[in-house]
Amino acid sequence: MGLIVVLVVGGIIGWLASMVMRTDAQQGIFLNIVVGIVGALLGGFLLAPLIGGASITTGAMDIRSLLVSFLGAIILLAIVNLFRRNAVR
């Protein structure tokens, strides 16, 4: 059951991050889930020591973990945009 929750929450976080970064038209459901989960891992690695909390992939589902995962997904999309277009939107 935990894996399903992580996939659903990761998909929502990836979708919200793609809306913020204006890449939603280029991504589908599968890519939103991947961006949400990989962004959660990235946020857990980079931002969790600064903000506190953990990422959603550890099973923590509080507001700090959702914020860390969301910011990690935005950072991931910014890095992808930087390599794809040589500019961050």
Score class of each variant (00 low, 15 high):
A60R: 14
L77N: 07
G2I: 10
V6W: 09
S69N: 03
V68G: 11
S18W: 06
I4P: 00
T23S: 03
G2H: 12
G59T: 08
A87D: 02
L3S: 14
L42S: 06
N32R: 02
N32A: 09
G72P: 12
A40K: 13
D24G: 00
M19Y: 10
A60E: 11
R22V: 02
A60W: 08
Q27C: 08
L82H: 06
L82A: 13
M21G: 02
V35M: 05
A25W: 05
I12C: 06
G44E: 02
I79C: 09
G39C: 04
M61D: 13
I51Y: 07
G44F: 02
P49C: 10
M21D: 04
L16G: 08
A87P: 00
A25V: 12
D62V: 06
L31S: 14
I51V: 15
I63V: 13
L3H: 14
D24N: 10
L16D: 05
G11N: 06
M61Q: 15
L46Q: 08
L82I: 04
A54I: 01
V68L: 07
L50H: 11
A87G: 04
A17P: 00
F70W: 14
G43W: 07
G39Q: 08
T57P: 07
L66V: 11
A78P: 02
G52D: 07
V8A: 15
L42H: 03
A73C: 06
Q26A: 04
I4N: 00
R64D: 04
G10K: 05
G11S: 08
A54E: 14
A73Q: 09
L76G: 02
L67H: 00
S69W: 01
V68Q: 05
T57S: 14
I56F: 11
Q26W: 01
G59V: 13
G52M: 10
F30S: 06
L47M: 06
R84A: 14
I37D: 01
T57N: 15
A60V: 15
A54W: 11
L76C: 11
L3A: 13
V38E: 12
I29W: 02
R89F: 01
R64F: 07
M19F: 04
V8E: 15
A48E: 10
G53V: 03
A17T: 01
L31Q: 13
R22Y: 00
L47D: 09
L77Y: 06
A25N: 13
L71K: 10
I12W: 05
D62T: 01
S18M: 10
I12H: 00
L77V: 13
V8K: 12
I75F: 07
Q27L: 12
F45G: 01
